[in-house]
Design a protein around this nucleic acid. Structure first.
Lengths: 188, 188, 188, 188
DNA sequence: GATGAATGAGCCTTCATTCAT
DNA sequence: CATGAATGAAGGCTCATTCAT
């Protein structure tokens, strides 16, 4: 039954988002999913494997959310803006998942190389954006990773603080912030 | 005896940096500090209180490191550059502490308001930098929090990825990245 | 289907010989036998019943091995020698089964009386050997059980230590040991 | 408190003798000893360490029992007879421990070499008996291990079967059995 | 008959916390 | 004040057994 695996995965993810990693016990996951503890082990080798899978699941959802409505044929700036806002809205709509992202990052991946490949594949459109910008001479001559860190990751930072309730942004602020991120990476 | 409290705190922090949260047991802390397990409870209500205090301790060290050699009388750009590099070097020299920062962040603060006040106090020079920049009309008219998020937090993002070994930066890259962060917040 | 029962039995015995008792799970037995876990319960009440049956199976094999090539018409000493060596060679060729025998022995038999009857039946030729020896006045006037314990069981003891690698015997040693066992039970 | 360690050890040994290895859970040991489960781990690294210690404990007791009242200055035959009877009586007085001895043997020793050295040390008088017998030309020219296997181990075999209730021996039988064991190893 | 997913009691072990000394 | 032995709940995981299909 494919459903049960999915059920467990979702329950675990939900618990993770709610209680953080410390609060994630296999027993709780089982209760939340409405299955017996032992059942989890039919679908996942151990806790680590379960978490690894959640990590991938979340990454997949994040990738999908960020790149939603982004066309590679759109102008660079449009794509940039769309992604920036996608991040922002995702941070709000899936606040808990988003805030726990840090925790996922700190988790050791069993296969780091494969993981990075997956990441690159999932965020292909993000990479494409920066590649196009570099080719068109719009962006500063830096590596894609650095450019991402300077612009979109800034969006993530702001979104997190926003989600944590440290401050709020008006729509104008939001526009200005997007513009500022853009300024960071374009040539002047 | 004030020393013993400090001793416990330092031992705990060291263990945290080395082994992460999973490796932090009260027994280990006690051993490391050379005191009995029960003694910890004379100085800290419980594990959570201990961790909270570590969090503050680390924040204090981070604040000190970031603002080292920063003179409020220096030109804005100089101060900005110094702080940016301070962050970068701290990330390298205290790699483990730095990477575990994520984990601290995810911890719920018992008193969020008090925490924010402390933060503001500790990072006074950082705030001052942005206030001065705003007053002199150098920066975009955005709140200090947003400006920080767009510039210095970007430094943190890059530094983390660097520390994680995701990529390396040449000195030229570093200069360019600082310049880019600067571009994000200044008027054009 | 009679085959399936046998299949399960053999798989279980094999696993037992290989991995010992700790490694014997119903799931593994099922896998090894190529049947579903539930199927085992069609043929055996529970794990205990399965093990009991294995015990019998092994006993049967041991009995067969020990009495192989033994003719009741052979002289007593020849029979004795043949059995002694049969034990020795069985211990070597089925080392794991043999060493695990201890573990079988410690298991409580559900029906001790029936068990003893079976044993007597299986080892009829062994008994016959001692009965003949007693009748012919060759052996000391002791019960068959005692005579067995003093002679052939000694063979088992030596064989076990040999199989465990505690020491090795030359062919001369072997002959001498057989002679010694014989000395134990004959009149002098 | 040294007592508690001993208490746990004794409780565990008792459970082992009563229920066998399958029935030995740390929880049961704790209950039997009247301590909390966690307490066991103050005194023993893990279950394996506990069992290893029990094994040694039992071996020590067995060694003591077998060699009780044996004087190296006594004539060989006297010593032999004393040991033979010591084994017999031990088998009766500590029936459960004795019957479970097999199980101890099947346990993997963490340090086999050290274990064998200990064994040799503990059973020094047994070895001495055979060494003296060999020197005096009383015994067949075989290794000490083989001689033991042929004589005293036979005692163990008989004692086990007796303890298991397979048969009973009269005093005359006992004497005859001792004589038979002796016959096995002496020159004729 | 056969399946194998599901169960849940039980296993070993860890660890925050307490309290008699 | 300090100790550290003791606690026992909770954790991850296994596995004999059941039962709907």
């Amino acid at each position: 039954m494919k459903e049960k695996r999915q059920l467990i995965l979702e329950s675990a993810e939900q618990l993770l988002a709610t209680d953080g990693f410390r609060g994630l016990s296999m027993q709780k996951v089982a209760n939340q999913a409405g299955v017996a503890a032992g059942t989890i082990y039919r679908y996942f080798d151990d806790k680590e494997a379960l978490i690894e899978e959640i990590k991938l699941n979340v990454m997949r959802r994040v990738a999908f959310a960020i790149q939603e409505n982004v066309q590679d044929s759109d102008p660079i700036k449009v794509r940039f803006r769309t992604m920036w806002l996608n991040i922002w809205h995702f941070a709000i709509s899936e606040k808990n998942t988003f805030l726990n992202r840090n925790q996922y990052d700190s988790l050791p991946s069993s296969d780091l190389v494969k993981f990075k490949e997956l990441e690159e594949e999932m965020f292909a459109q993000v990479n494409q954006l920066f590649i196009d910008g570099l080719e068109q001479g719009v962006f500063k001559p830096l590596s894609v990773e650095i450019l991402t860190g300077l612009s979109l990751e800034a969006s993530v930072c702001l979104a997190r603080k926003h989600a944590q309730g440290f401050f709020t942004l008006t729509n104008d602020d939001l526009d200005a912030a997007i513009e500022a991120s853009w300024d960071a990476i374009i040539k002047h």
